[in-house]
Computed example of a mutant assay.
Amino acid sequence: MAADVKGESVESDEVEEFLGHRARLFALAYRMFGAAGEAEDMVHDDRPVPARRVDR
């Protein structure tokens, strides 16, 4: 897991932000696909992948 200069988790902020939007993403996916299973698959597949941060 990546850490910033203070040693705090950087990735957890991004995951928390995603989780805050997850219900809305599911609702939109459900409207698009018309099935809860497909909507759940889309939201699950679309969760953020932590990227390495490079300090310059």
Rank of each mutant, 00 (worst) to 15 (best):
A27H: 00
F33Q: 10
L25E: 00
D46N: 12
V5F: 10
H21I: 06
D46S: 08
D46V: 04
F18M: 02
V5M: 08
V49M: 15
V5K: 15
A23I: 02
S9I: 09
K6W: 01
E8T: 06
H44L: 13
M42S: 10
G34V: 08
R22F: 06
R22D: 00
G34N: 12
E16N: 12
F26D: 03
V43R: 05
A36C: 06
V49W: 09
A23D: 08
L19T: 12
Y30P: 00
R47N: 10
G34Y: 12
D46Q: 03
M32Y: 10
E14T: 10
A36R: 11
R22G: 01
V5Q: 14
V5N: 05
G20F: 03
A29V: 11
G20C: 01
D41R: 14
V5P: 07
L28C: 00
E14L: 07
E17R: 12
G20Y: 03
E14C: 00
A27Q: 05
V15Q: 09
D4W: 05
E38R: 15
L25R: 03
F33S: 07
Y30G: 04
D4C: 01
D41G: 08
V10W: 03
E8M: 10
A36I: 02
R47S: 07
D45P: 04
D4E: 01
R31T: 05
A29Q: 00
Y30Q: 15
L25K: 05
D46M: 08
F18E: 03
E16G: 01
S9Y: 06
A23K: 12
D46W: 00
A35C: 02
V5T: 09
L25P: 03
G20R: 06
Y30A: 15
K6C: 11
E8V: 07
D41N: 13
E17F: 10
L28V: 11
E17A: 12
E17T: 07
D13T: 05
E38T: 15
S9N: 13
A36E: 13
S12K: 14
L28R: 14
E38F: 13
D4G: 10
G20K: 10
L19D: 13
M32H: 14
L28P: 02
S12T: 12
D45Q: 11
E16C: 07
A36T: 07
E17G: 02
L28N: 14
G7F: 09
A27K: 13
E38S: 11
E16F: 10
G20S: 02
H44C: 13
P48C: 06
A27I: 04
S9R: 07
R47V: 06
K6E: 15
G20L: 04
S9V: 06
L25S: 04
M32W: 12
E17S: 12
L28D: 15
K6G: 07
R22T: 05
K6H: 10
G34D: 11
Y30N: 11
D13M: 05
V49E: 15
D41W: 09
H44F: 14
D46L: 09
A27F: 03
F26P: 02
G7D: 04
E8R: 10
A39H: 02
M32K: 15
E40C: 01
E11R: 01
F26M: 07
R22A: 09
V43E: 04
P48I: 06
E14G: 01
G34E: 13
E11N: 08
G34P: 01
E40M: 09
L28T: 13
V43M: 01
